[in-house]
Design a protein around this nucleic acid. Structure first.
Lengths: 257, 257
DNA sequence: GTTGGCAGTCTGGTCTTACCAAAATGCCAG
DNA sequence: CTGGCATTTTGGTAAGACCAGACTGCCAAC
């Protein structure tokens, strides 16, 4: 159908910018609508490509093209033989940084250093301007970690929670966002390192002391002390990493044996 | 070729997603490489899909799948009958950060602070591991700024050049990239501030001294001193900003009159 | 009843061929 | 040199087929 439009109409500005309705775009938009309205919940497996094609009266090619878009935007994730699932909304900044790392894995190490550098700033700023509630939250995180009953399996997670609490206390939405994203990336890229960090009791002890010092400085609103404590902590972590990972950055494709 | 890992490990959720090398991904990556290396310049029309398919020994379907990804990421843009062109730079990271700022202009202030914090780190790292050439480059930037003959209109630009020279000297591609992007954003958002910074001769003098101290510390490979010098400098700049802009962040739409 | 294995089915990934429509190109008349 | 038209090129869509991995369900063995 849709023959050429009448010239007179095409000249009408109201109709000129219909960017040429591509079928695949229409499908993609429809799928996004279904996701937005909750008809397709995150984690849910959406109908097969063949079925979708039939449902929407388009070819499987168009469905695939639409899905390619959504995959590239990390809206969905497909597994051969498995199916295509709606993924939890992805972040633009995260995707940008992940791309950077994929382009050159050595960037990962730099990213870690940048993150560390920012945490020093965060500690100082949190000390200087955290609200009482935020200080209490940090303290609560600390106590959880200090609890002797706390299962070791939660240590890595608790650690992250602690640092994110500090991030919140900076009152900087950008920083909190950036830190969350960086944590996700680093976590994903070599999470096993993080776990390994807590393998030895003496390190655990060291880190706990570090954290206590940081929290104390923040509680006392002593910015410089918080910065110093965080720097010390990061030096400890870095030393542990070096010891653990040997020399350079861990190969991303390293076998997990 | 990365065989499957040991079942026990595969069961670990941390290792569950091994992306499985898809042909289309390989093609996409190859195209990205060509763009990154400059073999495909921005604005340039890349070979037709049929030709690309033949060049890479894959089907046109796979090429299209790869292009779908790049299109979704705004790396390329296709026009029916026209061709596919590499879209102008459009840095992914920059776009992400710009979106963040647009969403909430107050983020701009945070972004500035983050940038400042990172520059302290950069100064230290540059001092610790810059190559002789890089130290010379920094020194050259400094001398340009110190030149009494230097037209004042270049001051803002020279300043940026100086800081970017330090960024280069860190040897961190990520940092350099991030700093360039941040500079672009901040520059664009309120460039007139930067110019205003140099309006008063006494500030000019202060900043020049700051820069000299930073460069000196880097030249002497004194990391802590470099960090301290940079902190001092940033305090000066911040004070000047406050004095200038009055209270809060400048309206983004402020006229430059 | 539970468990383990196995076959059949379903799903996404890739390939081939074919056709459409719009843009780009080249050619020729004016 | 210019304007207009026909040809070619290019991206978009369609249909049919096959592969490999994941999923399902059934059945035998414990």
């Amino acid at each position: 159908m849709r023959g050429r439009s009448i010239p007179a109409l095409a000249a009408d500005p109201r109709f000129q910018e219909i960017p040429r309705e591509r079928v695949s775009d229409r499908v993609a938009q429809e799928l996004l609508r279904l996701i937005a309205t909750g008809d397709l919940a995150p984690g849910e497996r959406l109908p097969g490509e063949r079925q979708l094609a039939e449902m929407m009266n388009v070819s499987r090619v168009s469905v695939r093209a639409a899905l390619q878009q959504l995959k590239a935007r990390s809206v969905v994730q497909a597994v051969q033989g498995g199916g295509t699932r709606v993924v939890a909304a992805a972040d633009e900044l995260e995707s940008a940084l992940a791309t950077l790392v994929r382009a050159n894995p050595s960037n990962l190490r730099d990213l870690m250093e940048l993150r560390a550098s920012l945490e020093v700033w965060a500690a100082r700023r949190a000390a200087e301007r955290a609200s009482p509630e935020q200080r209490a939250e940090i303290d609560r995180c600390l106590r959880v970690m200090q609890d002797p009953q706390r299962p070791p399996k939660h240590k890595a997670e608790d650690d992250l929670t602690f640092h994110l609490a500090i991030a919140k206390a900076t009152g900087s939405a950008v920083y909190l966002h950036l830190m969350s994203v960086l944590s996700d990336i680093l976590e994903e890229m070599f999470s096993y390192h993080r776990y390994a960090l807590y393998a030895r009791p003496e390190d655990d002890r060291t880190f706990l002391d570090d954290h206590a010092r940081i929290a104390a400085a923040i509680a006392e609103a002593d910015g410089p002390a918080a910065a110093r404590a965080m720097e010390t902590h990061l030096r400890h972590v870095q030393a542990r990493y070096r010891e653990e990972g040997g020399a350079e950055q861990p190969a991303l494709n390293a076998s997990h044996a």
